[in-house]
Design a protein around this nucleic acid. Structure first.
Lengths: 221, 221, 221, 221
DNA sequence: GATGAATGAGAATTCATTCAT
DNA sequence: TATGAATGAATTCTCATTCAT
């Protein structure tokens, strides 16, 4: 039931390093890729390290030369994703000249990332045992926190009315993940349409929000 | 680390049955309660049947007189919750005379339920192993589907503009769960404020949504 | 997979006792009958007490009013069989006027018993887990021992030549059980033909046996 | 109560393989040997995988690197025995020029095998829980079938009179196992005497058997 | 006596991780 | 560094037996 082994695609960007280095990097990537597929298919709980390495030409012991534990490889997947998307999202929002750009830039970037990185998204967000999973690594929490800070900055700059930034962040995230999920279930993942839907919702909604500051404790999200 | 055993509260509503019956009902409830606490604390993946039964004065074998597996007890918790809230939500939406009543009724009912039923909500929605969990039992999927159908009915009645009901459902659910989570983290769970926030967001937002029917396959949500 | 409950046949011979007594005897017989069928189908190892009482209208606790353990009920089945057949076999051999009567009486009686009491025979002799089982209760060992003594008596009386009685007993028993098994597998259990085969074999064979006394320790079989 | 761990005898025939291979082969043999002893002492039903592994310096999980279950190791023991003796028996019978050679060759080979391989024989044939066990693996059934076919061939060649080959096979097997059992209980296992006894019995007996073909279904034994 | 739920020791098995080669 | 067998703690689950009703 776990995915079969698939011959690794040689990566052009590995050419320059020494052979040793190269193999090491390749093995690491192999394991990550295998883990992504296995987690996506079986879910974190049900997946075993053996499932992962079985999808690989490597031996089980080799796994531990690259990752200290099953959890570490899971976190690596998450962080890799979060690390790649966080700066993009932040940049998008930083350069926003209007609330519209802020919102639509966030959603567009997110949905495009999800569509192009479906395996990662699924590995993190999906789970078999009848359960769906969401993430909580340091990287991701930091990403949430950053969004909230960006919202507060936008309020300070007068770009946004003084709404509850904590709740607004939550609403943005809830909508982003839930719509992403729905989008991926459709025949054709129309990132534009999805982003437009979400943007319209928030553009219309934000104006109507009660103008009160957040009641959440400011420091820890 | 799993919660300690806590003396069960004697229930007045058990007076009428025979002692045998009463003990059975109590034991079942004991196990459910223990499971709720253990899932909330450790998450579904990390929790073991032993953790659950240890939180109880019962013997390990007794668990299996009531539930066939960890999964079954988890589903029982989910279904119990969903079974209790689904009719309330549906009723609220059915009697709505306006879009405002539809949206605000839904959120208000949901946040009140969550606040009063925190243990259940946490057992289902939270998860430690670095993961958070969301629900996918038949009952809950049915609840989602029902919301979508209620939205479609509202569109047909002209209560709502002809928006993508599948996406709107997803947005409502994403916001509901994510705000609930945030609400519970605050010192005082202000269900009114939370419902107002969510309602305002959608009341403003819905008007702005693109007027197109859902692109999702209509039958299976 | 274990046999279904079958309404008990009321036994005429229970009429005379008091109602209490009667029920007790009936329950005992019910359990024995159920055990016979369950052991025959699943084998002693795989059969559980629950399997047995499930085949009965009784409750699990009731089992222990009649038998102290699973083993005890198994022994009761064995002893019941052995107790019923032993005197018949012994009598048959005691009244034998010739070696022919001795041998043929033994086999005929045994095969008829087996054919009429197939459930008992199977309960004792068969076993699923891929295994076949033979019996070793006190009653049965006593039966083997009795056969050996009867052989020795026959030798003393000059009915039989002075052969190794221990080995002859073993040969008789081996042939008896193995042929019984084969006989029951055939479409029609022809006890006469089977007895004739076995008798002919031994009638011819005994004459040819080396005339030496048994080398086995005489006391314990 | 299960046997204690006994230091393994270093095998000369393992010299050539690599250390890894060697250890693997040794461990497998260790487990088999332990299983033989445990089955012989406790019987198949009562023996547990834990009993087997405890008799070994290995860890419990290691058992499952070699055998999938208790049943599998039991079958391995049986098949190992059957695999070793079957060709010898068949060969013995094939080269028989007379009925005497056929019968005596069979018994002599069998009793010698049993005496030299007592642990295996006991592991398979003995059983405590009040039960004795006989074997039914594919290998062994095939061995029985082969005996029957050899008998039929002998009949066709005129070596044997046209008797019921199925019953004759059963009688040979019953006598072989039952005498083997008795033989092992004696102070000194005299395979010659035992084989002579059995041979004499059948040599005399076969001549007396009714001359009819088998009534058993020919295909499956 | 009958009932059937509770008990808890113990079985089989899994699997993350270690470690000798 | 790669290998893959060994490890053994931990888990799920069964079931003979007990015991309150």
């Amino acid at each position: 039931m776990p995915p079969e082994y698939i011959e690794p695609i040689p990566r052009a960007d590995l050419h320059l390093k020494g052979k040793r280095e190269q193999t090491k990097a390749q093995n690491r990537e192999m394991i990550l890729e295998a883990a992504r597929r296995v987690f996506a298919e079986l879910g974190y709980g049900a997946a075993t390290v053996r499932d992962i390495i079985r999808t690989t030409p490597l031996a089980s012991g080799t796994f531990y030369n690259y990752f200290r534990s099953k959890e570490e490889v899971f976190q690596a997947i998450q962080d890799e994703s979060a690390l790649r998307i966080r700066p993009r999202l932040h940049e998008e929002r930083a350069k926003a000249q209007s609330i519209e750009e802020f919102i639509s830039g966030t959603f567009r970037t997110f949905f495009e990332f999800v569509a192009n990185d479906e395996a990662n998204f699924r590995a993190i967000h999906r789970n078999t045992d009848t359960l769906r999973v969401r993430m909580d690594t340091a990287e991701i929490i930091a990403g949430f926190q950053e969004l909230r800070e960006d919202l507060e900055t936008a309020i300070a700059k007068g770009l946004l009315p003084p709404v509850d930034a904590d709740f607004l962040m939550a609403a943005l995230i809830g909508v982003a993940f839930e719509l992403a999920e729905r989008m991926l279930r459709r025949e054709f993942a129309d990132t534009n349409a999805t982003a437009e839907f979400a943007t319209a919702l928030f553009m219309g909604g934000i104006r109507a929000l009660p103008n009160v500051p957040s009641l959440a404790p400011p420091a820890n999200a």
